[in-house]
């Protein structure tokens, strides 16, 4: 078999020289089918079974609409914060040398490594009346726990590494000659940033923000602790789906889950398009 493969000539030579193709692809497809595809298709079939009319009635009910609004608003707040904070972190970690930089860099992975329930528990206690931050914010008249700000806080915490870790490698790869040229032409630091640096990292930054936004829309573990979960006030869409399940209203749960799934898949496509743009950008600026 090896001999045959090496003698078949150049175009197909690299094709299937290595053994284990059937085994590895078969394992991959089998695993994907049973673990991912069949469960997801089940949800889609369930949605089809509900029928468009009932489906629309479920997702346009006042409580569901309120839950979608709260989820979207909080995710937008969280992403706006992370867009700035994540960019700042990526910039500082790439461009400056200072003591404790490696620890700061490692801290950026904490939200990925820490279980979301633990993050939710800790944030709730920190920002409640007997925590470290609660009393200070209370004196300023800001209530975080059991409000939409708490939801946004939990979302921001769990999704910030997406922005940092997408922008960081692009900044590292940037050719310093561009900035040097701008500097020698007399550009001020802020002008260099807005005219030279920012356009170069824009695609990656947008891709990171999109992923962070998608993650925020689907976040559950961290939020249920801090939100208070009041219908029409602080009830997110994922939680409403969960409540419908507990009421054995499987149609209700499936319809809400399908809307969230559609959002997630659209954002995945957007993020992939942005990533492709970002890598073209990187190739060009090298």
């Amino acid at each position: 078999m090896t001999a045959a493969a090496t003698h078949t000539g150049a175009p197909i030579r690299a094709k299937r020289v290595l053994p284990g193709f059937t085994l590895s692809l078969g394992t991959t497809l089998l695993y994907m089918t049973f673990i991912v595809l069949i469960p997801v298709i089940t949800l889609i079939l369930k949605g089809a079974e509900i029928g468009p009319e009932r489906f629309w009635r479920i997702i346009s009910s006042p409580r569901a609409v309120a839950a979608f609004q709260i989820t979207l608003t909080a995710a937008l707040i969280a992403t706006a914060f992370n867009a700035i904070y994540g960019l700042l972190m990526a910039w500082v970690l790439v461009r400056y040398e200072f003591r404790g930089k490696r620890i700061l860099d490692a801290l950026m992975d904490v939200p990925f490594a820490l279980p979301t329930a633990v993050a939710g528990l800790s944030l709730t206690a920190l920002f409640s009346a007997n925590g470290w931050f609660g009393p200070v914010l209370d004196a300023m008249g800001i209530q975080v726990v059991y409000t939409i700000w708490g939801i946004a806080l939990a979302m921001a915490f769990t999704s910030v590494p997406f922005v940092v870790r997408t922008v960081q490698p692009v900044l590292e790869d940037m050719d310093p000659a561009l900035e040097q040229a701008a500097l020698t032409l007399g550009a001020r630091p802020w002008a260099i940033f807005t005219r030279v640096v920012f356009p170069a990292i824009l695609p990656a930054w947008l891709a990171g923000c999109t992923t962070a936004f998608a993650r925020s829309l689907g976040e559950f573990g961290a939020i249920v602790f801090i939100a208070g979960n009041l219908p029409f006030r602080t009830e997110i869409a994922a939680l409403l789906a969960y409540i419908r399940l507990e009421e054995f209203d499987y149609n209700g749960a499936a319809a809400i889950a399908l809307v969230l799934l559609a959002f997630a898949l659209v954002l995945l496509v957007v993020s992939n398009v942005l990533q492709a743009w970002a890598s073209r950008h990187r190739e060009a600026s090298r």
Binding site: A254, A264, L268
Partner: peptide
């Protein structure tokens, strides 16, 4: 990469429906 984009809650609902 798809499981990364799907909220775990949705994954749970899928498995419950199956």
């Amino acid at each position: 990469e798809i499981p990364f984009s799907i909220s775990p809650i949705i994954a749970g609902i899928c498995y419950l429906l199956l």
